[in-house]
Amino acid sequence: MPESYRSTLQKNGFVVIPSILSDTEVSSLRAIATTATNLARTGSWPHFRTVPKQFPPWPSTPPPAAEGGIWGVQHLLHPDMPGRAEFAGLYFSEKVLSVAEELMGVEGDRTPDESLVMELFNLLVAPEVKDFELRWHRDDIPWDVSADEEERLLAAKSPGGQQSHAQYNLALCEDRSLIVIPGSHRRVRTETERNAEPYEAYLPGQLVVELKPGDAVFYDSNILHRGVYRAKEEGGEESRLTLHGSIGLKGDGKSKVRATAVLQHGVGAWVQRGDAAFGIGERAERMRANLVAMGTGEDVGYSLKG
């Protein structure tokens, strides 16, 4: 029998799920994702990730294309985002939420006491003119901690491999950008990994996650990983459009740590707006209410810097 998604994630730190989206869905989402990217590139959408900065906060003005421009578009669920309804339809869809529930060990939740939390939904894109790389990292654990502290933090954040959130990349174009070291989410770094250069091109055991349009990879955010972003051709079509989302689990005892990881991106500034309701069913609103309960994000700080 094939392994479950959850057992594969716990063993390897990631699991690839093919064809979550149909070709028709990919085509439709690629069109609105391209629109969102164009708005961000021209400064008409103020929420983006800028080259060469890896972690928030990012500047409010996109760098010139010659300097790389942007590598991500933030807040696809924002009330002012064109295409928001279609983005929300995917984020809150059964095909995505059911995988998140399995990975976090949650049975189908249809009660008023919703256990899932709306978190982040962003877009990863190709920089312009020149390539861009992310350094090796874990999302919630600083790189300079000692081996003992690293072991403690890994155990605290994913006890027994149990995650408090489900994080994923869903490709709308072919994507070979994510590089992971399988199994590294369950152990401290080796001496080779600890002493490696930040942008080391190869570490023993690394694997390039290959996604076709419509495929998704769900991964433990504290697996050792980095990203390699190949520049798109000047004036050409977008060569990378990858939806980057996360879904949380309420009441897991790590709410403060998770609040920092989520609210550092600024989602708390708009999720309580009067026009922030999605109008697509009660579950989306219960999940949004769970995010609102996290707070506005003031003074939460940042998980990582740089």
Score class of each variant (00 low, 15 high):
residue 261 A to W: 14
residue 22 S to A: 03
residue 132 F to D: 03
residue 280 I to P: 02
residue 273 R to F: 08
residue 143 W to G: 12
residue 220 D to M: 00
residue 103 L to T: 05
residue 129 V to M: 05
residue 156 A to W: 09
residue 16 V to H: 00
residue 1 M to C: 13
residue 219 Y to S: 14
residue 143 W to P: 08
residue 126 A to L: 03
residue 175 D to G: 03
residue 230 R to S: 07
residue 260 T to V: 15
residue 39 L to G: 07
residue 137 H to T: 03
residue 198 P to D: 06
residue 73 V to F: 09
residue 183 G to S: 10
residue 147 A to Q: 15
residue 113 D to Y: 12
residue 183 G to L: 12
residue 287 M to T: 02
residue 194 R to T: 15
residue 240 R to G: 03
residue 75 H to T: 04
residue 131 D to E: 10
residue 251 G to I: 08
residue 117 V to D: 09
residue 288 R to S: 05
residue 221 S to E: 14
residue 9 L to T: 08
residue 211 L to D: 02
residue 181 I to W: 02
residue 262 V to P: 02
residue 278 F to P: 02
residue 259 A to D: 15
residue 242 T to V: 14
residue 249 L to K: 00
residue 116 L to Q: 09
residue 143 W to C: 07
residue 93 S to W: 00
residue 280 I to Q: 04
residue 66 A to D: 14
residue 173 C to A: 08
residue 190 T to N: 13
residue 181 I to P: 04
residue 105 G to D: 01
residue 278 F to L: 10
residue 110 R to K: 11
residue 43 G to N: 03
residue 234 E to G: 10
residue 210 E to A: 03
residue 273 R to E: 10
residue 177 S to K: 00
residue 78 H to M: 05
residue 218 F to L: 08
residue 146 S to F: 08
residue 173 C to W: 04
residue 164 S to H: 14
residue 254 K to P: 04
residue 272 Q to E: 13
residue 83 G to D: 09
residue 186 R to E: 09
residue 122 N to T: 09
residue 120 L to G: 04
residue 284 A to F: 02
residue 135 R to P: 04
residue 203 L to P: 01
residue 283 R to N: 07
residue 223 I to V: 06
residue 79 P to L: 10
residue 104 M to L: 11
residue 153 L to M: 15
residue 50 T to P: 00
residue 122 N to M: 14
residue 123 L to P: 02
residue 201 A to G: 10
residue 62 P to E: 00
residue 285 E to F: 07
residue 149 E to P: 10
residue 154 L to P: 05
residue 223 I to P: 04
residue 238 E to I: 02
residue 99 V to Q: 07
residue 302 Y to T: 11
residue 127 P to L: 08
residue 291 L to I: 07
residue 138 R to T: 07
residue 41 R to S: 01
residue 241 L to Q: 01
residue 176 R to Q: 10
residue 43 G to M: 02
residue 47 H to L: 11
residue 83 G to Y: 12
residue 22 S to W: 05
residue 57 P to F: 14
residue 126 A to C: 11
residue 63 P to W: 11
residue 13 G to C: 04
residue 47 H to Y: 14
residue 57 P to C: 12
residue 208 V to C: 06
residue 1 M to R: 14
residue 51 V to M: 06
residue 164 S to L: 12
residue 26 V to H: 01
residue 52 P to E: 13
residue 303 S to W: 11
residue 11 K to R: 15
residue 257 V to G: 13
residue 295 G to Y: 03
residue 3 E to L: 15
residue 168 Y to I: 02
residue 134 L to Y: 04
residue 178 L to Q: 04
residue 214 G to Y: 00
residue 133 E to L: 00
residue 35 T to N: 15
residue 170 L to S: 10
residue 165 H to S: 15
residue 277 A to E: 12
residue 263 L to W: 03
residue 157 K to H: 12
residue 198 P to M: 08
residue 111 T to N: 10
residue 53 K to N: 09
residue 189 R to T: 11
residue 88 A to F: 01
residue 193 E to N: 11
residue 113 D to P: 01
residue 268 G to D: 08
